[in-house]
Every structure is written in structure tokens, then in C-alpha cells.
Write a protein that binds this DNA or RNA. Structure first.
Lengths: 196, 196
DNA sequence: AAAATCAACTAACGATTGTTAGTTTCTTCT
DNA sequence: AGAAGAAACTAACAATCGTTAGTTGATTTT
């Protein structure tokens, strides 16, 4: 009954999802085929269905895995005792690090979520809206406390999240800039622009 | 011989490309079918081929149309006599305006370019690299002249372009923030973060 | 009016899509 | 060793993909 899959990469399902995330990023969810995926996993297409239920399920796994991780990050920061500026810096750094070492997953959640089927699509979007709203609240708080310059919180959130998501273009490049430089410079730019 | 197509939207080819850009944005290039497109144009799928050569050609038209427009914008700014800060503000505003009133096209060029086939793909990426490099040069110039704070130009460019490209998420939302507020606040954020 | 061109149509092609059924092989437990 | 379960396989399905061929009717040019 119990099947202990001690391949160094965890469950086969996890391997499939990992390979799928690479493929979805390269080709897009719509253009990536199950036979493509199977080949990368080293198996026939039909065999994938011993581990997963559908192509959609893979996308769902990826999107909600990422969404949950971001949510949990946000909760940690919200409940911490720091200045609002530090909170934002903290969040930004967590985002950047996620983008750096869970690149493929975050990219999919960022760019391929529109291929989610209902009710997952609505659920995902609702989580995203809520996340952004709460980020906006931190900034609004920062403005009221006089720590931040007077800026539309919605626009600030949009700017910050989009900037970070653009790291994907760095990921795919020749990387003349190190990860550390990328993080420190982007944090500097985004925080300085916020600071009063 | 001459066919004057005085539909208020210009050539039929232009209509097709316009409808295609909406469709490609909604579903992604890979998932959007020619039959889908034909239906939106109000014609059978095969009839599209009287006006275009292939699905790929549509994508190429869109991507290079946008690329050319950005390039021409950049050249105008480069050759102008303004401070480096004003140049950057100028560029940022032009980007934002493009994003506001040519939304669908810019989005495709931003997100679906990876489905371009060779040699168009290489050509496009090369143009993009060059564009970013030249933007970086303006910033480098600004730092040397003491107008901007010391920041890695590559990271600044990445941040700026990504932030602007995130406007697509505003486009698709309920728009409680006006276009004017969006522009002024984003410019403020991005320029203040740059200013020394 | 005749000739030429354009743009629509129907029908079909070969390829590929996600997925299911049925079978066989490998692994683990009793 | 034998039973049981997991996970691989082959084969095939219905649907859909981009695209081509061939034809028809309308519009423009001569």
C-alpha cells in the first residue's frame, strides 16, 4: 500500500510538476503538450495519468502553491513589529527571493493563471486581489504615519509587484549582474521612491 | 486592381490583426485558434488566408509594429536637449501612454513574443536588448552628471520597464484609479526613486 | 460587355491535442 | 513463493489544430 518514493526529488508527482513548470514557462500552458511533458519526465504520456488527474490539475497545483506561500509571507510581515517602511522592504525582499529561487513556479502563477478553469480562476483572482489590497493598506498606513511620501497606494503596489515580476527577464539573461546586486539595487530603488 | 477598403477601421488585414491582438491577449497565442479569430472577424477560418499568410505573420506584425514605435520614441528622446532626468521622465510617460492607448498590441509584444519563429525571434530580442542598453546609457549618464543616485543602470531599467508593463493589470481591472492618476503617480514613484 | 481580380465559401488534409481503456511489468508485503 | 498494488506500456478515441484546394459570386478594370 504505502509507497515510499525516495528519489532525491521527492514524489513522482512532484517531479512531474517541476518539469511541467519549466515547460509551461518556456512554451506557455496552451502550447505545452502532455507528450512534451512526458518526454521530459522520461515516460509515455499516458503514464502521467497514474500520478496526476489532468493537465489543468498541474497548473492549479503550481498556482496555489505559490499563492499560499505569498499569503503566508504576508501574514508574517503584517504581524511583525516594524516600521511600515521596514515591512515593505521585508515583503519586497521576500518577493525577490521567491523570484530568484522558485523562479519557474512564480512565473507560472504570474503569467499563466488565466488558463485556470473555474472555480479555481475566481478563487485565485480573489486571493490576488486580497493580497494587493493588504499590501496597499501597509502603504496607506505608512503615509498616515508620515514615513512615506504621499502616493496612491494602489499604484505603488502595482509598481512594486510588477517591477519584481520583471526579474524573470533577468533570470533568462546572461546575468552580468549578480543576484545580490539585483536584490540590493531593486530594493534601494523601490524603497527610496517610497520614503518621505 | 486597386481596392479601397473604406470600412472605418482601415484594411481588412488591419481589422484581423486588431481582433487577433484582443484574442491573443485573452487566451494567449498558443491557445487562440484561427477559427476563434475568424468568428470574431465574422468570416470563415479559411477566408482569413486571403488577407494574411499565416498565424505567425499576425504575431510578427504586432510585435514589430510595437518595437518600431518604441524605437522611434527612444530616438526622439535621445536626440532632445533635456536633462537626463527629464529624458527618463519623457520615456516613462511615452511608455505609459502606449500602454494606455495601445494596450492590446503592447501586451502581445511584451508577453507573447516568445512564440515568434526564427529569424524573427532573434531579431526581436536583439532590438529589445539594444533598446534597454540605450536606456541604461541615459541613466549611466545621469549618474555621472550627478543628477541621479548611484544605482545599477541595468536594474533601474528593468525596474522601470517592468513596472510599466504591469499596467496591464490595471487595464483589466475595475479602474477605481483614473488613467491620469495612474500616470502621474507611477511617474512620481519611478522618478523620485531615481533622483539624487 | 468581357476580362480580371478579389474575397468569400465548403470540404478536406494530416498532424497533434488531452485523455481513456486495457494490458503488462515491476515492486513490495505477507 | 504468491498475492496485491503501483506504475509503466501500447493503442486508440474524438476533438481540434493550421492550412490548402477548388469553387463561386461580387466588384473593378479594360
Amino acid at each position: 500500500m504505502a509507497k515510499i518514493q525516495s528519489k532525491k526529488n521527492g514524489t513522482k508527482k512532484e517531479v512531474i510538476i517541476e518539469k511541467a513548470s519549466k515547460l509551461f514557462r518556456e512554451k506557455g500552458f496552451g502550447a505545452a503538450s502532455m507528450r512534451d511533458l512526458a518526454e521530459h519526465v522520461g515516460v509515455e504520456a499516458a503514464s502521467l495519468y497514474n500520478h496526476i488527474q489532468s493537465k489543468s490539475e498541474i497548473l492549479q497545483s503550481i498556482c496555489f502553491k505559490v499563492a499560499n506561500e505569498f499569503m503566508s509571507n504576508l501574514e508574517k510581515v503584517e504581524s511583525s513589529a516594524q516600521s511600515t517602511l521596514k515591512k515593505m522592504e521585508d515583503i519586497i525582499r521576500r518577493h525577490i527571493r521567491m523570484m530568484l529561487d522558485q523562479y519557474e513556479f512564480v512565473y507560472i502563477a504570474d503569467h499563466e493563471w488565466r488558463h485556470l478553469s473555474e472555480p479555481y480562476l475566481s478563487n485565485f483572482l480573489s486571493q490576488r486581489r486580497s493580497y494587493r489590497k493588504r499590501l496597499g493598506n501597509i502603504i496607506e498606513d505608512g503615509i498616515q504615519k508620515g514615513e512615506m511620501k504621499n502616493i496612491e497606494p494602489y499604484v505603488a503596489v502595482l509598481t512594486i509587484l510588477s517591477a519584481i515580476s520583471g526579474i524573470d527577464s533577468w533570470q533568462r539573461s546572461r546575468k552580468t549582474t549578480s543576484a545580490e546586486d539585483l536584490e540590493s539595487n531593486m530594493v534601494k530603488y523601490l524603497i527610496e521612491g517610497l520614503k518621505k
